[in-house]
Amino acid sequence: MGVERVSYFSHDLEFINRIKELIEREESFAVVEIVKTEGPSALKAGNKLIIRSDGSFEGWIGGFCTKDEIIKSSLEAIEEGLIKFLYLKTCHGGSVYLYIEPILPKRKLVIIGNNPITYYIKRIGENIGFNVMEVSEPKEIEKIKMNKNTFVIIATMGERDHEFAEVILSSNVRYIGIVASKKRGDDILSYLRNKGYSDDLISKIKVPAGININAVSPEEIALSIIAEIIKVSREAKAKEVTEEEIDLVCGMTVLKSSPYYSTFNNRTYYFCSKYCKEKFDSNPQIYVK
């Protein structure tokens, strides 16, 4: 779980430059700093590392018994957008205290169309911190870096809206909202299905866009759409569930993919390290109850 890019950062400037590079590339990642250690630990206070959104890591992550938990907690921090404080025990009886801070790219709001509704969407979006971009032609979309922090509003009032939806559909955006009537929306969705797009992709489209607040004026419609975008942006995406076990020797949570495991009484037990496996093997009866 996770691939190391470099063994360590030789100095703080190298670490800072790498963070700057990832931010410029609009990547999501977490910075992990070792705050304090007690007893035996491969990690030391002041050590820093980077966990990227694909589970790969850069910097010294320490021993096997803490590695998976650090990566797992960092990915949760990235997904939730929240700082985490982590306390771990090492398999040799030490303790590690960590600070995990997610670094996320600014949410991007792409607006297609020029009318009173898009005017207010832009104003509200900018006021609450979105990076707002306006588009008038499908070819302009190719120049925009789309990711799961990108939200798109199509408000062309029926003019080429199906064309814009098709161009955006295969990108990695979180949400595509179309300002249209239900009948027009059904026509757009039918068009996309007939073009061969899967229901999974089409499910990213919300038409009519916005939460139902009985909005009437352009300002109210814009507010309902921004509210829906915020709701979607806060929802955690479905996570792949990985089976876990408790290391009976040290109490650590470990994945069933761990290379350290033993079979006793027709059951398999998993361990965080060779040390814990050997300790278990020497006298399994004292650990299995």
Rank of each mutant, 00 (worst) to 15 (best):
S258N: 03
Y287V: 08
K108L: 07
E24P: 06
V6C: 15
K183H: 08
I154K: 09
I141D: 02
E21N: 00
K279L: 12
C250S: 10
I176M: 06
I229Q: 02
S28Y: 02
I178R: 08
K89Q: 11
A180I: 09
Y120F: 09
G210F: 06
K48E: 10
D186T: 09
Y191W: 12
P284Y: 14
F64T: 15
I188H: 14
Y87K: 14
K106M: 07
K84N: 09
V207M: 04
V254L: 02
N114V: 10
E159I: 07
L82M: 08
C276Y: 12
K139I: 12
F164W: 00
E159W: 04
T118M: 11
I34V: 15
N265E: 11
N114Y: 13
A215P: 05
C272W: 15
M146K: 00
Y175I: 00
E58H: 09
V179K: 00
E4D: 05
A30E: 04
K289C: 11
I19V: 12
I154V: 11
V132H: 10
A209E: 03
R52Y: 10
S56F: 01
G125P: 03
Y119V: 03
L88R: 01
I168R: 06
V173I: 01
I100T: 15
Y270K: 11
K122V: 01
S7N: 02
V232Q: 10
R193A: 01
S181A: 09
I225S: 05
S203Y: 10
